[in-house]
C-alpha cells in the first residue's frame, strides 16, 4: 500500500497500526506515586484513568524519551518512545528516590499494541468492543474485553491504543481488518504516523527530539515544571535564565527540504531545518525549523532553505497545518456511512 493511501485512511476514515516502535512499562507498588513524582519532570496532577504527556530528560535537559504517562489506581503505565525497554527500565531504576520500592514490568514483552486512528476510528472501535467507548475523552484509560486501552494518539484524529496479549494479536488484527472493511480501513505504517505527527505539531523524539535541544527550544515547557527536582531540572533553569535565541517553528513551502538544511531569511542565516516531509494532503512541504525568535512568529514569508537565495521558498505557518476532520465528526450525529451527506470544513487550514 502506498504512503498516500495510508495517509488518506488516517485523515478520512480509519487506519490500523502496530505500535512496535514504542515501549510499554508498568510501575507498581507502594512507592509508585513517589517514584513517578520524582522521575518525571511534570507536576504530577493525574487522576485515576487519566493520561498526560511528559518527558524523561538527560542531565543537560535534552529529551531522553517521549512519555505518555497513565495512572491506574496507584500504578503508572508508561508508553515511551526513544529508548529500548532495557534502557528505559535502567533509567527508571537509577532515578528512584532512595528507599522507594517499586516493581517495573515490561508490558510490551507480553503485549502488542494496536492503534486505530482516524475521524471514524471511534466507529470501528464501537463495532469491535461496543458503543460504550464512544464517549471516552482524549487522554483517558479504559478497559474492554480484558484489554487496557488508551484513548490517545498523535495524528490529531480520534485515536485508540489497545494492549493485546501477544497470543491474541493475530486474531484481533484479523477481526479489526474484517470489521474495518466497511469503513475503508487501511493499515498505516510508522512513516504515515510520523508525517501526521508533523502535520499536527506533535513532538517526535526520533526527529526533532534527536537534535541538541531542550524543552524551551522545542516549545515543550508545558510538559515540565520549574518547581520540582528531577534529572535535568538545573540545566533547564540555567537555559531559561539565559533565554533562548531560537525556537522550533512550523514552516511550509516549496521543496525538496531535508533535515540539516540551513534556513535563510532575506539572505541571513536564521536557523536550520530539523524535520521535513512532503504533505500529500497540502501538496507542499511541511517542516520544523529551529528559527531565530525574531522571525519565528506565524505568517512571515521570505525564507529559503539551503545555502543560496534560490533554495526552496518557505514561510512560517500556524500549526497544525491540517484542519482535522475529527474536530467536526460528532459520534452522536455522524457516521462513516452517511459522511457524504455532511459538508465538513476543508481539511487545509
Amino acid at each position: 500500500m502506498s504512503l498516500e493511501e495510508e495517509l488518506k485512511a488516517i485523515r478520512h476514515s480509519c487506519a490500523l497500526s502496530q505500535m512496535d516502535h514504542a515501549v510499554y512499562l508498568r510501575i507498581s507498588g507502594d512507592g509508585a506515586y513517589e517514584a513517578a513524582d520524582r522521575i518525571f519532570p511534570t507536576t504530577l496532577r493525574l487522576r485515576d484513568a487519566q493520561i498526560m504527556l511528559t518527558l524523561l530528560l538527560e542531565e543537560d535537559g535534552r529529551p531522553l524519551a517521549d512519555i505518555q504517562l497513565g495512572r491506574e489506581d496507584d500504578n503508572f503505565l508508561l508508553v515511551a518512545e526513544g529508548r529500548s525497554p532495557q534502557d528505559l527500565i535502567e533509567v527508571v531504576r537509577d532515578r528512584l528516590p532512595p528507599g522507594v520500592q517499586v516493581d517495573i514490568d515490561d508490558i510490551g514483552a507480553e503485549h502488542d499494541v494496536l492503534a486505530l486512528s482516524g475521524p471514524y476510528a471511534w466507529e470501528v472501535m464501537s463495532a469491535l468492543v461496543g458503543p460504550e467507548i464512544v464517549g471516552m475523552p482524549y487522554g483517558t484509560i479504559f478497559h474492554v474485553r480484558g484489554w487496557t486501552c488508551f484513548r490517545a494518539g498523535k495524528t490529531g484524529e480520534y485515536g485508540y491504543e489497545l494492549f493485546i496479549p501477544k497470543q491474541d494479536t493475530a486474531a484481533v488484527r484479523a477481526e479489526i481488518l474484517e470489521l474495518g472493511a466497511r469503513f475503508e480501513l487501511r493499515e498505516a505504517s510508522l512513516a504515515a504516523l510520523d508525517l501526521c505527527a508533523l502535520e499536527n505539531w506533535f513532538f517526535n523524539v526520533r526527529r526533532e527530539g534527536s537534535e541538541n535541544l531542550t524543552p524551551l527550544e522545542l516549545q515543550l515547557q508545558w510538559r515540565i515544571s520549574y518547581q520540582k527536582d528531577y534529572v535535568g531540572a538545573e540545566a533547564l533553569k540555567r537555559r531559561r535564565a539565559q533565554g533562548i535565541k531560537r525556537r522550533l517553528t512550523c514552516l511550509v513551502g516549496d521543496g525538496p527540504i531535508h533535515a540539516g538544511m540551513e534556513l535563510r531569511y532575506r539572505g541571513h542565516a536564521v536557523g536550520h531545518i530539523v524535520n521535513a516531509e512532503f504533505s500529500t494532503l497540502r501538496q507542499e512541504w511541511v517542516a520544523q525549523g529551529l528559527v531565530d525568535t525574531r522571525v519565528s512568529r506565524p505568517g512571515i514569508t521570505g525564507f529559503a532553505a539551503g545555502p543560496s537565495l534560490s533554495g526552496p521558498a518557505l514561510r512560517t505557518f500556524l500549526p497544525p497545518v491540517i484542519n482535522n476532520r475529527s474536530l467536526y465528526v460528532n459520534p452522536q450525529r455522524h457516521s462513516f456511512r452517511t459522511r457524504s451527506e455532511v459538508t465538513f470544513p476543508e481539511l487545509l487550514s
Binding site: 542531565e59 541571513h268 542565516a269 531565530d292 522571525v295
Partner: peptide, 30 residues
C-alpha cells in the same frame, strides 16, 4: 550527561547564531 556535552550544545548554538548578527527585519515586518 557531562559538562562537555552541554558545552558542545552551546557551541553549536552560538556558531549558528553568529551568522544572523546582521539580520535586518523590514520596518513593516517589525
Amino acid at each position: 550527561m557531562s559538562g562537555n556535552n552541554e558545552m558542545m550544545v552551546q557551541d553549536v548554538r552560538l556558531s549558528r547564531q553568529s551568522a544572523a548578527e546582521g539580520l535586518v527585519i523590514p520596518v513593516d515586518e517589525r
